[in-house]
Each structure stands twice: as structure tokens, then as C-alpha cells.
Amino acid sequence: MALNITVTDETDSTLRLNLDGSLDSDTYAQLESLLASKVTDHTKLVAMNLADLKFISSSGLRVFFKTIKQLKKNGGKVAVSHMQPGVKKVFEIVKALPDLSIFASVEELDAYLASFQR
């Protein structure tokens, strides 16, 4: 299915994205290659707004797992906000929620980012 990725903010240490659509075997490579081009050893936070992400399968999970591992190695984090119930269920099954920073709102995430960049 289709996936639209928008980079909403980018600094040396942080990357913010909106994911819109479906992260599956047809589309995971789009996110994988975007992250490969933008995430460096200096990246401390990748924050993804998942409000418009309607579907995720194991191909999509794999990209999240890779990114979490990569960032954790350098003391960084992956944050998500606005997870829809179906997407959340998938993360719950593989017990990935403890490894994600989860934000309910853009405001919460903004506050967190502000503290991060200070």
C-alpha cells in the first residue's frame, strides 16, 4: 500500500517525521532508505508522528527495530506519537513498546524535544 513520509524537522541530533499510510512489504524500503540517509552517529532522537499510519506489518516493524538498535547504541532514542490502535497492537505483540518513547500529543513531544535540544 502507499506510504508518504514527510520530514518535518531536522537538526544534527534530531529528526522528525510524519508517516502517512501503510508501512508494509511494499513500502518499508522507502522509510529504510530515508533513515539510512539521515540518521548518523550524532542522531540522538528520531521522532515519528504516527497519526496517519494506518497499517504496519513485520516488514515495517523490522525498520523500527533496526533504528531503535542503531540509536540506542549511541545513547539515542526513537519516539512515536499518536499511535492508532491497530498499529499499537502490533508493537504490543512483539513487546516493542518499552523500547519506544511514546507521546500522546504533539505538545508533549515538542516539550520533550525542547528539553533535548537545550
Binding site: 506489518s57 513485520s58 516493524l61 523490522r62 527495530f65 533496526k66 531503535i68 538498535k69 540506542k72 547504541k73 502490533v90 505483540i93 512483539v94 513487546k95 516493542a96 518499552p98 523500547d99
Partner: peptide
């Protein structure tokens, strides 16, 4: 995969089977 350990200690694989079984 062992889902009880933190992500950094897990191998990335077998996720699809976990979803199918669940």
C-alpha cells in the same frame, strides 16, 4: 525471538511469526 529482553539484545527476526501466532 526472546521478546522479554530489551531491543538492543534481540536479533531482528521472527517478528512476522510472532504476529501470525498472536
Amino acid at each position: 525471538p526472546d521478546l522479554e529482553v530489551p531491543m538492543e539484545d534481540r536479533a531482528i527476526g521472527g517478528l512476522g511469526l510472532e504476529l501470525v501466532l498472536a
